[in-house]
Design a protein around this nucleic acid. Structure first.
Length: 583
RNA sequence: GCCGGUGUAGCUUAGUGGUAAAGCACCACUUUCGUAAAGUGGGGAGCGACGGUUCGAUCCCGUCCACCGGCUCCA
């Protein structure tokens, strides 16, 4: 947990109190309902309810909001008092969720506290507004969703109402405006408007079709990544999309992790083939195909590898959560002594990429084992402790912020995810990295050391650009569709002012060698063509009319709407040359 | 997978128990224009799919599919 500043604490108190207000309003409007929990969250609060047989939808929110405003007028400070288990049982006899909590707290010997700011008694640990009548005024209910009681799918699904609350009207308005802005930058919306990708119902959910313009982004990104990896001493390999099932028994993914894999194809008798959900074992086979010497290490094998994962249908989300993806994957085989340095290099590579793309807000998340679910993990204790130590040591050598997350480890070792935040505030895990002390042994990988002895290599897994799908989805939102020139599907569009100028436009086009340019020779007005180019977020518009034709120039306009005046082609080509990712 | 919502031309949306409307896009013609939408005309959907109710369903009911908001999961 991050520590809260006093300001945050105050905001959380207000929001938490607002959740109580919501519960009070709902219970009055829907007498049979029972409220469960209602905490403050990053951007607001929620409150879970069991509505019994009643169904509510977002259409009910305005009425609930109104009731909240009415009740608020009668509310005073939250008077919190400690009560006995017996008293609490009596007070909440009508609410089975509160009763469950009371029993649990009783057993754990926790203090049980109740509070009542007006006409609504609730079970709550505290942390509230001192002056609800003033402080809770500026709230808004946002959405209705389902949520399992206590987060477990084995339990009943409750109805969750999300809302937010701010100390002032202007802050609330600003937040709501930000949500609107976020909608405009949504990669699914921009992906359609800019013709970047589509998903076909006939082909299947979660399977991306890259359209010509989106494919340019994908190819440019891949080209950059491969050039960079080659500079950093990686070697590119290519491996198949399918494999015999044995490979995944060796890795330990089967039979326990079968649910996320597409069902196998039964080919020859007794032989099952799987679509690969990850590239690792394929690279291991390349490591293994001949005896390896310590002199070859670190051996860095890289591939933009296609993998398929049968994600739950309700989880699919545009480009961010898909069933088929192309990963910027690599496995580094090294000695134990090299592991920390190599992992530091991997961190540096991430920093290089993110800096080049202007991604400033990111942090690491260290995924650790959940001690309550020991059966989920393979490998011995020593291995886990060492892997964690090596990764922590490497991260300490960089200055990247790290948070810890219990229960997020892979089954074969702890992992470190890069979490990046888009300009509209959404967070994504974009890259998973590991120091893997487990798979080398599983796959019987070895190299000969200086003393002629066999050693098991340490394997570092890394994917700084994640998958094309998720990374480009993120970039669409990060840039709001206005890609930097080197990634822009169309870099320049030539706009002849009248049909008279079409011939000259072609001449200009011929000079744009190596530049992704188009001519808009439609019989539209210049204004209309400019508008369309703006909406497509084309970085440069080259407007050519009689004047430019006479002077052998182009009038340059940027997508920011700035008229740069007439320049000659050499000047424009110079601008374009400076637009490389590292420039 | 689970809870709730949605599904009408390429896109955005209107609409009705009696075989569907508009804007943008597209096509044609006119216009030849100086930095974010010229004008006129035209073609295009049988209303996600399948069943049921009904004299008749895009509209009502059921099942399925897809999508959206979440939850759970996430190698």
């Amino acid at each position: 947990m991050t520590t809260l500043s006093p300001d945050n604490q105050n905001l959380n108190n207000i929001r938490h109190s607002c959740a109580h207000l919501l519960a009070a309003a709902v219970l009055e409007l829907f007498p049979g309902a029972q409220n469960a929990i209602g905490p403050a969250i990053e951007n607001g609060f929620y409150q879970d309810f069991d509505f019994g047989a009643v169904r509510i939808s977002e259409e009910d929110l305005p009425e609930i909001e109104k009731k909240m405003q009415d009740l608020l007028q009668t509310w005073g400070p939250f008077a919190t008092k400690e009560v006995s288990v017996e008293q609490a049982r009596k007070d909440f006899a009508w609410n089975k969720y509160k009763l469950e909590l009371i029993e649990e707290f009783g057993k754990e010997g926790k203090k049980i506290t109740e509070n009542n700011p007006g006409n609504f008694l609730d079970l709550c640990k505290g942390g509230h507004s001192e002056n609800p009548k003033e402080e809770l005024k500026y709230f808004k209910l946002l959405s209705v969703a389902g949520a399992y009681w206590r987060g477990s799918e084995k339990n009943k699904m409750l109805t969750r109402i999300y809302g937010t609350c701010f100390p002032t009207q202007s802050q609330l308005d600003e937040y709501l405006k930000m949500l609107e802005e976020a909608k405009k930058r949504d990669h699914r919306k921009l992906g359609q408007e800019l013709e970047l990708f589509t998903i076909s119902e006939e082909i299947g959910p979660g399977l991306i079709l890259w359209l010509p313009k989106g494919n340019i982004i994908k190819e440019e990104l891949e080209k950059w990544a491969k050039e960079t990896e080659n500079k950093w001493d990686y070697q590119q390999v290519t491996t198949p999309h399918i494999t015999k099932s044995g490979l995944f028994y060796t890795s330990g993914h089967l039979p326990y992790y079968k649910t996320d894999m597409y069902p196998p194809m039964k080919l020859e008798e007794g032989e099952e083939y799987f679509l690969k959900p990850m590239n690792c074992p394929f690279h291991h086979m390349i490591f293994k195909y001949k005896p390896r010497s310590y002199k070859e290490l670190p051996l860095r094998l890289a591939e933009y590898g296609s993998v398929y994962r049968y994600e739950a249908s309700g989880e699919l989300f545009g480009l961010m959560r898909v069933r088929g993806m192309i990963q910027n994957d690599s496995h580094i085989y090294c000695s134990g002594d090299q592991a920390v340095d190599e992992f530091v290099k991997v961190m540096k590579l991430h920093e290089y990429y993110y800096q080049a793309l202007g991604i400033k807000e990111y942090h690491l998340e260290l995924g650790l084992r959940d001690p309550k679910k020991q059966d989920k993990y393979h490998g011995d204790e020593k291995m886990w402790v060492l892997a964690e130590k090596l990764m922590r040591e490497a991260v300490a050598k960089t200055k990247i912020k790290m948070v810890e997350s219990v229960g997020s480890a892979a089954f074969y070792g702890p992992k470190i995810d890069f979490i990046i935040r888009s300009s509209v505030g959404r967070e994504f895990a974009i890259s998973t990295n590991q120091v893997d002390l487990y798979m080398g042994g599983r796959f019987n990988l070895k190299y000969t050391d200086q003393n002629g002895k066999d050693q098991i290599p340490v394997i570092i897994h890394r994917a700084p650009l994640g998958s094309h799908e998720r990374f480009i989805g993120f970039l669409i939102e990060h840039f709001g569709g206005a890609f930097p020139v080197w990634l822009a599907p169309v870099q320049a569009i030539i706009i002849p002012i009248t049909e008279r100028n079409n011939e000259y436009a072609k001449k200009v086009m011929d000079e744009l060698v190596g530049i992704r340019a188009e001519i808009d020779s439609r019989g539209e007005t210049m204004q209309a063509k400019i508008r369309d180019a703006q909406l497509q977020k084309v970085p440069y518009m080259l407007i050519v009319g009689d004047r430019e034709e006479k002077e052998n120039k182009v009038a340059l306009r940027t997508r920011e709407g700035v008229d740069m005046g007439a320049i000659n082609m050499l000047e424009f080509l110079k601008i374009m040359r400076e637009a490389a990712p590292t420039g």
